[in-house]
Design a protein around this nucleic acid. Structure first.
Lengths: 213, 213
DNA sequence: ATAAAGTCGACATAGTTATGCAGTGTTTGC
DNA sequence: GCAAACACTGCATAACTATGTCGACTTTAT
């Protein structure tokens, strides 16, 4: 009935918090705390981070912040899943952490049972988050356009807009989609009209903003 | 002790499923099912959608799909929160739904208790999702760059890259950031070198892809 | 102190783009 | 059958871009 242990490292400067987590996690039969540090600097001198399945990391740390810590781990040990934690429901930092590579976010007030569930969820491919963070993340995914100024480009135009973003000349685009240089010109004119722009870079920018590209 | 009821509408073509949800939700003292329909077409003829706090909507529907339904609701009743549901863990559709404006996603196998919790979470500003979806969403937020080919532009270069995306000429950029035309040229050269491109549109495209803009 | 790196200003020019105008077919709707 | 919309081709040109090269000044590191 014994399955592989989930190896966990902790980076947290508050010793009571840290020892609290340690004791909670160590009493679970499927968890094993293999490292516990008061700062990123101390943690990265050691090898336990690289051997961890999960790193539980505070955001507010003396010296290297948790955000920088996540970046470091992502670059050097891409397979390690970092779950951030903060006493504060500080959205900016949370988003920075996610962008830096964290796969989840917990509040420190999270109870022992939820903490354990979050870690198991993270191991199973989930991303433990507070509901508020989840909503903000969803909102970020949604296009901002109101629908009124929604632009519809034809397939041909979309095709050419994508070519534009690669920096090709009229001639080069023509060759790659089997159309004359002037044919490409014709479509680009129309793209400009539809997007209300008058340069390639503007068109590409709008294309990205409106998720056409 | 009586607080405001959460008004819920259901759009689901399978009548057993629909009635199952209805009975589950109606037994909760804080919920009130104000509408229940077998298709979007039927639902949108009625006014209950517009009065709903939450709409529980199937993705796979005859006629107008749930995805289209969400778009419609978003455009016409932006304050209504739509939670999508699907029997299938079909990521593409889920993402389409989220992009169309859904604020959460549930599997139909979700139990009664979880369903109720999801609705309450949605009302409190959360975004109920399966763990797998949550992880994918997080991944979407994270820059795709591997870290090896990560590019660092200076503040000045970033400033100019943003100007580039607006389609300004060298001269116009120079005026707006108080720099000579040739100064702008100098920076754009360097941006091109760092991004390994040789045109404005390519630079803008890379800027968006690497989330520099 | 000397070198190296970063930030500009100036000048030149081949090459590319944006845009206007004028045709030629094809498809679509009425 | 005729107008209108669409998808091109052709041509022309002012304007703008990409790129090389030279020099000056400032900051940073050694």
């Amino acid at each position: 009935m014994e399955s592989t242990l989930i190896k966990i490292s902790i980076v947290e400067d508050n010793i009571y918090m840290r020892e609290g987590w340690e004791s909670v996690l160590d009493t679970e039969s499927d968890f094993c705390v293999i490292g516990s540090y008061g700062s990123c600097e101390l943690a990265f001198e050691d090898s336990s981070i690289s051997r961890s399945d999960i790193v539980l990391m505070d955001i507010e740390l003396p010296g290297m912040s948790g955000i920088e810590g996540v970046s470091y781990i992502q670059e050097n040990h891409p397979g390690v899943n970092v779950i951030m934690a903060s006493v504060f429901d500080d959205n900016q930092h949370v988003f920075d952490a996610i962008c830096a590579g964290a796969i989840g976010y917990l509040l420190k007030k999270t109870g022992p049972e939820e903490l354990c569930n979050a870690i198991r969820s993270a191991m199973e491919g989930g991303s433990p988050m507070t509901p508020e963070i989840a909503r903000k993340v969803i909102r970020l995914m949604q296009p901002k356009q109101t629908g009124a100024d929604k632009v519809k480009l034809s397939d041909r135009e979309l095709e050419i807009l994508k070519e534009l973003s690669t920096g090709k000349s009229y001639q080069a685009i023509g060759s790659s989609i089997f159309l004359s240089e002037d044919g490409v010109r014709y479509h680009i004119r129309n793209i400009y009209k539809k997007l209300h722009v008058n340069s390639r870079s503007q068109a590409v920018a709008k294309g990205f903003k409106q998720k056409l590209i």
